[in-house]
């Protein structure tokens, strides 16, 4: 990449920081330059977020239809997966997967609900009532 070709497109980072790129000056020597963003990678990041939003919307629908428990919805909302959630809760992955079942979730003791609520940064009430 030539120094003049360092892209200066809009990005989510633009107002906060520019990032360092390595590029060649006119005599071919590498120097660092700052980039505000690159349209290509912005498109990739936008795509990732579109996917996240789709997954959250689907999870919500599944909870409202009684197919999944709120634990599943909040896991998606907080960009987690079962492995990450297992790390935070200290529960086994298979335990968490059981908690995804509305029938199992309905019988969870308050202490376990509190563990989830704390990690999702919500109250137990909010955890029980996905709207």
């Amino acid at each position: 990449m030539k120094k003049n070709d360092i892209p200066q497109d809009d990005s989510a980072l633009a107002d906060i920081s520019r990032e360092i790129c390595y590029a060649q000056n006119e005599s071919g020597e590498y120097e660092t330059g700052l980039s505000k963003g690159w349209e290509v990678k912005k498109a990739a990041l936008d795509l990732a977020w579109e996917d996240v939003h789709d997954r959250i919307a689907l999870a919500k629908k599944q909870v409202l239809n009684g197919e999944k428990s709120p634990v599943y919805f909040y896991m998606e909302l907080k960009l987690m997966d079962v492995q990450i959630l297992a790390g935070y809760t200290g529960f086994y992955k298979w335990t968490i997967k059981r908690h995804f079942k509305p029938s199992v979730f309905a019988k969870l003791p308050v202490v376990k609900l509190e563990v989830y609520a704390k990690i999702f940064d919500i109250t137990v009430d909010e955890l029980k009532n996905v709207q």
């Binding site: 790129c21 390595y22 590029a23 690159w38 990678k41 990739a44 990041l45 990732a48």
Partner: peptide, 13 residues
């Protein structure tokens, strides 16, 4: 995802 791993902040391009 490949583009993000390859170009995202931290890779120097």
């Amino acid at each position: 995802q490949i583009v993000r791993m390859q170009e995202e902040i931290g890779t120097g391009g």
